[in-house]
Every structure is written in structure tokens, then in C-alpha cells.
Design a protein around this nucleic acid. Structure first.
Lengths: 206, 206, 206, 206
DNA sequence: GCCTAAACGAGACGGTACGTCCGGTCTTATG
DNA sequence: CATAAGACCGGACGTACCGTCTCGTTTAGGC
């Protein structure tokens, strides 16, 4: 099942706006997020300025400021927009297989453009605590919880070591990906499967 | 043995300068590096500007520009200056023990101020390729090579799995540390030893 | 008649602004021009920096750059602003008298603060061709044309030598003033009337 | 007779230096003055920096500072060096003729490179009083005195109006030249002779 | 239809930091 | 001493963005 759980929305999520006045232009919102995404992917963090996003999206600078408090939050939201549909949390009755699939899916996604954005968001998070918090809450934690659930299943099935430190396994798995992402080291499918194999060596019951 | 291998020096390494003209003022160099370090540790990347470094160190802005092409390189050098003496590569006849020690030493160092600097440098590396390159070459790679040597010893001793993907183990170990560093998650000795234990599970011969 | 002919305006001359966006703050514009004027008069060209003008006027440096491309143009405009209302082109039926009045009016004006500005603008014009051009077009030429008209009248009236080289007379008259201005030699009413007398000796019909 | 009276020398004027230590290198002095001259003529006041002069002359910056307190003084001296030999003060028994010759000689000289330097020095004199003073004392005044002498002769000979304001005639003559120089208006031999003719109209006895 | 209120575009403005150019002063080595 | 070389401090430059502000214009829903 593909799913994207508990991700907070910046935009008005639910029912009818109800409020008076001109309603928010959804096209403008998308244009901004896409421009942000494109700049981050094609040019990089250094060229990611509100000015540039405004120019590229053809939107007034003030409109961006109206909806996003900082660059980091904008980057984060454009990351989520692009990333959310891609990650697969599959649950079969083989936990090891599921774990492999999860890692592969994650690596697959992050080895593409989404990875560049993720790295940018993390970097921006070093300047701005709010961005960091958002990244952890809206992306890192949900991913972690879902993965934890998956590993627990393996434990219950008796396939995984019962003394396993789940949190640490996830640190190692995700950390390895971030490391290569941030240092611009190559990430290919070979590496990916090698990662799950190596990790499973320490995870699966001897 | 404590050792710091192959790290390129910015300052004139060896004998007599011999060059004409007023010699470089070593005190000024140190003042700049210390100011950079202090700002990064106490205030963070957002306040790390050449302007601020100049102010804090009491040195003219132009003098900083004379020696460091970008903020990233300056951050990197101030990181190395502070980090170099701290990391221990110990070689005993017990490879697993050595590995544990290496991880602990690395975590110890990076859980302190040096870790904040490292995170800043990595973040800055997302803006500027030169900074990233420098970080990899002057810090990441040497560390990796030394660690690889250490693990190879374990392989030769027959203690470690012979099908081990060394590079990947290092990705996982170091990546886990960076991950927590960059997301400002707590890193304590318990976590540290737990990390080596978990990794060794996948490393040591069943 | 007092008149100020054909001087190009920087600000929107006529009707409705009509333009979108926040309208230009006229007070800011005046503050800048006045500060520039004051610095040139009280401190001189050496202290006339954009920085100083910004400080004195209490306006952001960038705002100055938004409207004036160079210091010279700023100096020039502040000169015009202050000078324009002061010069009198009087036309009676006595051309000699008119000429005398013109010279006196010019000397009067330029022996005050406006003269210091004029000298500064001319000096700045040695560094920057645009400033020079502006001075010639917006000040020198209009003055010259008006004076030429006046002298022509004297020719038509038969009061002035018919072989008179008008341009040259103006070179001599205006040049004499600039000379003393630029060399900081005293300019007083006595000198002024002496100037018109001497020049008229060569102008009027024997 | 060609002559250059009372011009103060910056460099060691006369006899033997006698002093201990390495003697001043005359070649260096010339190289600096020539470089200064060349820059002023070919590039203009804006590019006339100590830095540029040092570069062009192949001399260390400090050497320039040792001998010339300011750029203005350097420009002035390089002007004098180049100008001095060119001006002719001829005395015949025809004062009008002499006057014409003087004007022509002056215009001739100043319509070439020397004129650009003169304009630069005058401009620089607006920033720095010392430069202005030097220009007046070392160039303007001597020229004025010599010219005054010449005109007095005409008065004594009864050729010139006895109520002539000599100083003012000179203001007009020299001022006219400066005016065109500073505004970069063309100065040609026709204009030159026209100038003396026009001025003589007001000078010579009716 | 008119009114109200918010969205949006446009651009002025006060700021901060950038990276550079020069100006002066100094320190050291060499001639 | 004179000169070369170059480090250093400092002021100003002109630029890029930032975030805020003040306008005018547009676009809905509610009266």
C-alpha cells in the first residue's frame, strides 16, 4: 500500500474556506512550489532565493512571503509535495522482504531529484531551527514510525533478533543514505541492495 | 597511536619562509580561526558571516578574504584545526575492540562542539562544491581510509565476515552519526556503544 | 523675467503617476539631495561619498543607488535643484545692461554655495563622462543659449560689434568665473562688475 | 626666451647628495612620473591610482608613498615635468604680438596631453587643498606674473588701454581655455587666434 | 449590482552582507 | 638609506537579497 500519513498541510486543508474575500489562487501556489523545486534541483541551494523563485514562477515576491515564512519551509513543502507520492510502505508476511523493499524504495526516491531537495532542506535546517523541526516532524519521524512498525513485525514473527535496537538500525540505514546524498557520493541500485543485505546481517536471527 | 594522516596544511608547513615582504602574522590567523569556530559553536551557521568573524576576531575583513576564498573553506579549516588532535586510531590485536574504540572516539569528538562545526561544514557544502570537496578530501576520506585499514585487519585475523562490504559498514556507521548531528538528535555514550554493538553484529563472524 | 528653460526633470514631471507599486517617497528624494548639497558645501568633494550622504540624510544606501547611478549625477541634480531658481535672465531694451545683469546674476549665484557645487560637479566630470555630459546639457548649454539670445539682441540693436564671436565672449565670461571658482580665488561684486565692464569694452561698438 | 621661473622642486634639486646610504634611484623617479603621466593621458583621472602607477612603472607602492604625499602632488609634478619645457614667453617690441604669441603657445600646449593633465590636477585640487595650492603656486601664479609683465609693457608702450584690469584679462583668457578643457569642448588653432583677437579688442587702445 | 475583504502585482524602502578596490601604514629582506 | 615585496587595517564601493511597507487592481461571496 502506498500511503502518506499525518503530514501537516500548510494550505487550508479541509472543508470550505467560508471566509470572505478573494480566494487563494491554487495555480499560484503550485507555480511557486514547482519553481522552488526546479531551482533546487537544477541550480542548487545557493541560487535558491525568494527573488529567484518569484522570478521563475512569475509571482510577486510578496505573495510568497504571504504563505511561507522562510525559505526553508518553502523548500520543505516543495519537497513533501514531490516526495509524498513516491515512497512505498509495503506489508507482506515476510518482514525481511518488506525491509528490503522499504530501503530500496527510499534509496530509489532519494537518489533522484528528491534527494537533492532533501539535502538542501537538511542544510537549510542548520541555519533555521524551524525548518529542521519541520523536516523531522513531517518527514523523518513518520518515516521512522512506519519503519519501526515494520521491524516490530519481524520481531513478532521471530525472524529478527529480539535484542535489536530498532532506532539504531534506522539511524544506520537512513544515515548511510543521507551521508552519500550530502557528500554527493554516487548512489546506485547495487549500493542500495548491498545496504539492505549488510544491515539484515545484523538484524536477522543468526 | 594517535595520528592525523595526510591532512593538507594551509599554512607554510616546513622550513623557512624565505619570501620577501612582511611575513604573515600567525596570531591573526589563529584569531580568525578561533572566532570562526566560536561563532559556529555558539551562534550557528546563520550568524556565521565574514563580517561577524572579522568583528569577533578584531581583524580587518579584507585580511580574511586574503587567506580564505569562501566561508565554507574557513569553516572547514577551523574545524580541522580543532578536530585533528582529537581523533584516536588505536591498533591493538583485537580488531573488534579497535573498531569499538574508533567509533567511540569519533562519536565522542563529534558529540561536542566539533560536531556542530562538522554539520555546518556539510550544510555549507550544499551551497559550495569546493567546501564539499575539501570536507571529503581532508576529513572524510582520510578517516575512511584509516577505518578501512582497521577493518581489513579484522578480516585478516578471521574475526570479521569475509564477505563484508567495508565501505558500506562505514557509510552506516558514519552516516548514523551525521544523521543525528544534522537533525540535532541527542548523541550520548549509550547510543555510541549501542551503535558499535549493533554494527558488530553484522560484521563479526557468526 | 525669471525663467529656467529646458532643464530635464528626473522626477515624473507632469500629470498622474499611474504606475503600480508603492509610490516614490518625495521626502526621501529631497532629504538625499539636501544632504548631498550640504556635504558638498560644508565638507567638500573628498567627503562626498554615497555612504556619507546616506548617513546624513538618514536614508538607506541602496535607496540612493536606486535613483542615482553615480555620485556625479547626484551632485549635479542637487546642484540644479538649488541653482535653478536663482539665475535671472532679464530682457530690457538695453542689451548692454541686460548683459551686465546676466553676468552679475551668474557671479552672484556662483560666488555662494552653488559655486562650490558647480566646481565639484566639474571636477567629478573629469572622472566620469556621464556627469560631464549632464553638466553641459542641463546647465552649461541652456545658459549659453539664453546668453547667446541676449547678445544677438544687442547685435540687432546695433549696439554690439557686428563681427563679434559670441561663443568666444561666453567662453571668456563663464571661463573667468570657473577659473576663480576652481582655484578658490575670491569672487566679489567688485570683480563681478569689473568683469562685465572689461568684456563690454571688447563687445560694444567702438 | 623660454623660461620656467621659481618652480619649487620636490626632488633633490642641486648639488651632491652627500648623504650616506643608498642613493635615490633617478630612473625610478622618472618611471613613476612617466607612468603617472601616461595613465592620466590615456585612461583618465578615474584610473589614476597609486596602485595603477606602481603597476605601470614596475615600482613598489611604498616607493611612491616615500616621495609623494598624495596623488594630486604626483599628478602635479608629472604635469610640470611635461609642461615646463613647452611654454614660450617671447618679448619683442610689439606687445600685442607678444600677447597673441603667449595665448597661442598656451593654447597649443594645453590642447595636447598636458591639457588633460591640467584638468585632472584642477579636478584633484577640488578634493585636496594642497594640490590646489601647488597648482596655483607652481603653475598658475608664475604664468600670471609673466603675463602681467608682458601686458604692462604694452601699457608702457601706450598700445593698451591705460585703465585695463590686467588681472581680469588674464582671468578671461586663461579661464576660457580651462572652461573648454574641463568640459572637453574642442580647442583648435582657429579658436585660439579668435580668442586673442577678441580679447585684444577690449585691450588695445581704441 | 454594490460592498466588503482578501489575494495578488508592483515596487519603494531600510537593512545586512557580500566581495573588491584602494589607500595608507607596517614589517622584513635585499642592494 | 633606497627599494621590493607584501601583510595588515580600514573606508567606500556597487550589488544581491532580505523582509516590510504601501499602493492599485482583481476576484470572490454576502447584502
Amino acid at each position: 500500500m502506498t500511503e502518506s500519513p499525518e503530514i501537516p498541510q500548510t494550505q487550508t486543508g479541509g472543508a470550505k474556506p467560508k471566509t470572505a474575500g478573494r480566494p487563494r489562487n491554487e495555480g499560484v501556489r503550485r507555480a511557486i512550489l514547482q519553481a522552488a523545486y526546479a531551482i533546487l534541483v537544477e541550480q542548487g541551494l545557493a541560487d535558491f532565493t525568494i527573488e529567484a523563485v518569484a522570478l521563475k514562477s512569475g509571482v510577486a515576491r510578496t505573495t510568497i512571503y504571504r504563505w511561507w515564512p522562510t525559505k526553508g519551509v518553502l523548500a520543505m513543502e516543495s519537497f513533501l509535495e514531490a516526495f509524498r507520492p513516491q515512497l512505498a510502505y509495503v506489508h507482506t508476511d515476510n518482514a525481511a522482504e518488506d525491509f528490503r523493499n522499504l530501503i530500496n524504495s527510499l534509496v530509489n526516491t532519494l537518489s533522484g531529484p528528491a534527494g537533492k531537495i532533501a539535502a538542501s532542506v537538511v542544510a537549510e535546517g542548520q541555519r533555521d531551527a524551524e525548518t529542521r523541526r519541520l523536516f523531522v516532524e513531517a518527514f523523518s519521524e513518520p518515516l521512522r514510525q512506519e519503519s519501526t512498525r515494520l521491524i516490530r513485525k519481524g520481531l513478532e514473527q521471530g525472524r529478527f533478533r529480539e535484542d535489536l535496537d530498532i532506532s539504531l538500525v534506522l539511524d544506520a540505514a537512513v544515515g548511510a543514505i543521507y551521508l552519500r546524498l550530502l557528500l554527493c557520493l554516487p548512489i546506485d541500485p547495487t549500493w542500495s541492495s548491498s545496504l539492505s543485505v549488510t544491515l539484515l546481517l545484523g538484524i536477522e536471527r543468526g
